[in-house]
């Protein structure tokens, strides 16, 4: 890696929350348009963030805040590893750790809403994290490595002369990553742990003012990380095709998530777990078995 390469990576890291902020802005605007409303300005999440930073601090207890910062720190760590082309498994576990800290923070206060949110958050992790890790395993089986730089280099799948499109060889893993993105961005039908108006805002109910803003910042980073995860599924040895493909893929997934969010109602937590165990898990196991069989040369 040369200096310019590292500079670009650092720039991407700094721009990651801006991307997350813009995502939620576009999300709110498009949702409003889909409901035939005018909707807030595009930079509304930024105004919310600034406002929250300027509010007076009301602290429930200090450990609550430590967990909030730990959540953000582990998300930033995961994104940092991703941008330095690190190990996919480490990224998955770092993401998982951040979610655990979020749940622990919600458990550290006495609000029953917060506790319900934390319980749901843990169950949601049980449903989604194994799928995400198995998706990483399918990528490993296909490309021979968990390390991103090797994945980019080795994921060979000939398609119109472009060398590397994981999307076509691993459609099931891609589906699972989209599912994880919907769950982790708290979109319908899986906005279970922060269900607004049902359990107010679940895990975030006791955070207020600047500390709520910090968790929002973490959420922006998380979103960037998930979309970065989606973008693994398209890479090419030609730089501009690679970048254009990644952006197109991210945008398509973004629109898909928005449409799903606006056209579905919230499910209960056991429906998410059932969905994950009955549909997600068998699908990805079938995918793994197929890859193993084809690599042994039995078919194809």
């Amino acid at each position: 890696m040369n200096t310019i390469d590292i500079a670009i990576r650092i720039l991407l890291f700094v721009l990651a929350p801006a991307f997350g902020c813009l995502f939620f802005g576009i999300d709110r605007k498009l949702t409003a348009r889909m409901q035939n409303r005018v909707g807030p300005p595009l930079l509304q999440p930024w105004y919310d963030f600034k406002k929250l930073m300027g509010k007076t601090e009301e602290i429930v207890n200090h450990i609550h805040l430590v967990f909030a910062f730990a959540y953000v720190a582990f998300i930033m760590l995961a994104l940092g590893i991703f941008l330095m082309d690190g190990d996919l498994i480490v990224i998955c576990f770092s993401l998982g750790a951040s979610q655990v800290f979020l749940a622990l923070g919600a458990f550290s206060v006495r609000s029953p809403y917060s506790h319900v949110g934390a319980h749901r958050h843990l169950l949601q992790m049980v449903a989604v994290e194994p799928l995400l890790i198995l998706a990483a395993v399918t990528i490993k089986l296909q490309t021979g490595s968990f390390v991103l730089s090797d994945i980019y280099a080795r994921s060979t799948y000939p398609f119109f002369g472009i060398n590397t499109i994981l999307l076509l060889s691993l459609p099931v893993a891609f589906f699972i990553v989209i599912l994880a993105t919907i769950v982790d961005t708290q979109k319908s039908p899986f906005d279970i742990s922060t269900a607004h108006s049902e359990i107010v805002s679940g895990t975030f109910v006791e955070y207020s003012g600047p500390y709520l803003a910090i968790t929002k910042l973490g959420h922006w980073f998380e979103l960037s990380l998930l979309f970065a995860f989606v973008s693994i599924f398209f890479s090419s040895d030609v730089l501009w095709i690679s970048i254009a493909g990644k952006l197109t893929l991210d945008f398509a997934v973004f629109l898909l998530i928005l449409v799903i969010d606006n056209s579905t109602a919230r499910l209960t937590i056991d429906r998410l777990v059932k969905f994950s165990v009955r549909i997600g898990l068998p699908l990805i196991i079938i995918n793994i078995v197929l890859i193993v069989i084809s690599s042994m040369g039995v078919i194809a």
Binding site: P41, Q44, S197, V200, S201, V205, L212
Partner: peptide
């Protein structure tokens, strides 16, 4: 919501 108003239902927010 076009003024940025959200119904939060939570005094802390």
């Amino acid at each position: 919501e076009r003024f940025g108003i959200l119904n939060k239902g939570n005094p802390k927010h």
